[in-house]
């Protein structure tokens, strides 16, 4: 297992470098001159422009710029944006919002998804089962953009149950955006649990457990559910990495100052250093949680051995 993890960690390095280079190259191609934009209506003195261009390595060719950036990055230096603000400060300020949103979303999809899936799986073709199937089909198909507006309008504006936007009400203000963000995965978790539970209920070991005279409750909680949750847990784990990078729409509609919103604003403002820094961070989270999931998979399911 140790060797497997080491090998996987080594393999993540080219992916991290490749992804950050890809974004770096695209940001490099962004139109306009960010230095000139700094001056606004009054053009900057040529000496100042030259100094700033030198400071941000803007006159170097793309590969040289990237290597210089990478050199700073491995020492933990994310660089500064064009207004002299440290990128790491922006990240420190914005990341907690995204982390809280992700925690709320994961909690919602785990609790509701697993319970709904379990109830549906136990009584296949029953009322609850069909309800879960139909509602998950509908939820999966609603674009998150539409869902965000519907939730905001119906539950926020009309019913007034939730704050409409912003994070002024603490964790409570994350509830509605978290629900919207989680909706797709929630439906998927419910379906995955349902299929898994239904499949496991037909397995021989469940029949054995019943034949031994175990009460239904024990058979389901101790035998069926524990085995059924293996694919579910791994999906949820990988979903953490996805959600950390995928909240641009939710953060925009609900006006949450997280990293998704920050990276989008930075693309618009051509703040290359911020874009590359945050995207690299998102890629790191994504790779990290996928690695954790793969290891977890082997821990949970002894049939899988990586060595």
């Amino acid at each position: 297992m140790g060797r497997y993890i080491a090998r996987r960690l080594l393999l993540t390095i080219p992916v991290l470098i490749g992804a950050s280079f890809l974004i770096f190259a695209l940001v490099y191609a962004l139109p306009g001159d960010p230095i000139r934009a700094l001056g606004g209506d009054r053009p900057l003195a040529p000496a100042v422009v030259a100094e700033l261009r030198d400071e941000f390595n803007l006159d170097d060719p793309l590969p040289v710029q990237y290597v210089k950036y990478l050199g700073d990055l491995v020492q933990g230096d994310f660089g500064t944006d064009f207004r002299g603000r440290e990128v790491i400060d922006t990240i420190e300020q914005r990341l907690p919002v995204t982390i809280r949103l992700t925690i709320v979303a994961i909690a919602i999809e785990t609790v509701i998804g697993i319970i709904a899936g379990l109830l549906a799986g136990i009584r296949r073709n029953g009322f609850l089962d069909n309800l879960v199937l139909v509602s998950s089909t509908i939820v999966v198909a609603i674009p998150i953009l539409v869902l965000a507006f519907v939730a905001q309008y119906v539950l926020g504006v009309k019913a007034g149950w939730f704050p409409i936007a912003g994070i002024t009400e603490g964790w409570y203000s994350y509830l509605l955006p978290g629900l919207v963000l989680a909706s797709g995965s929630l439906a998927y978790v419910a379906r995955l649990t349902r299929t898994s539970v239904a499949e496991n209920l037909r397995a021989d070991y469940v029949r054995t457990a019943r034949a031994k005279g175990l009460p239904n409750r024990t058979v389901i909680t101790r035998h069926t559910l524990r085995n059924s949750l293996i694919p579910v847990v791994t999906f949820i784990g990988a979903d953490i990495g996805t959600l950390m990078g995928g909240a641009i729409v939710t953060e925009t509609v609900f006006n949450l100052p997280g990293i998704g919103r920050a990276v989008f604003d930075s693309v618009q403002a051509q703040e290359g250093a911020v874009v590359v820094g945050i995207v690299t961070l998102m890629v790191f989270f994504f790779i990290f949680f996928n690695l954790v999931v793969d290891v977890l998979y082997a821990v949970l399911d002894p049939r899988i051995r990586y060595d």
């Binding site: 992916v15 890809l22 974004i23 940001v27 990078g245 641009i248 693309v267 995207v279 998102m282 790779i287």
Partner: peptide, 10 residues
């Protein structure tokens, strides 16, 4: 590893 929508935006 790059978020889908974000890549397209850039």
């Amino acid at each position: 590893a790059i978020p889908f929508i974000l890549g397209a935006i850039v």
